[in-house]
Amino acid sequence: MRTDDPSIRWIEEPSLGLSGRMFLPLFVQGLTTTARHLFSPKVTVSFPEERPKVDNPLIYRGVHRLNRDAEGRVKCVACFLCATACPAHCIDIVGTESPWPDREKYPASFTIDELRCIYCGMCEEACPVDAIELTSLLDLTGRSREEMIFDKEKLLSVYDQTKDTEPMPSARLGGTL
């Protein structure tokens, strides 16, 4: 970088003053700050025993779920918008003709590879019918790679598990679909 660049704004270094040069006030300041923090309440969460507090579950990006509508059917219409939006290409949908009269298609299978997912929430943004959502479940573990590939049933069961604690925003807004 050129030092004679006219766009640089030069700032004068503040002078320390006598007390600053004597180090003593800074010495005391540093030690008192350290001592205060030494005895202040700790913020560490002892995880397995103590659950971390999620401030707003609605905007937290944890494990995915597939929402159900009022009749208990899967809400998804297999439009592939989430799979298109996904930067990690972790969503795989097989659409087929819907058995119900109110929509044309529905997903015959809907799998998300939770290991490939980067939890960016783009699928949630992209979904036109609020079918896919990210919950506030944060401790997702498994013993094998296969176990971590969630299919439609598992994603729907996540919805059943979390629907009481985290209601759908569209339901709260009185949406129908």
Partner: peptide, 10 residues
């Protein structure tokens, strides 16, 4: 431990 306490950890 001291390092943790000073940083408000456990």
């Amino acid at each position: 431990k001291m390092a943790a306490w000073v940083q408000d950890r456990r």
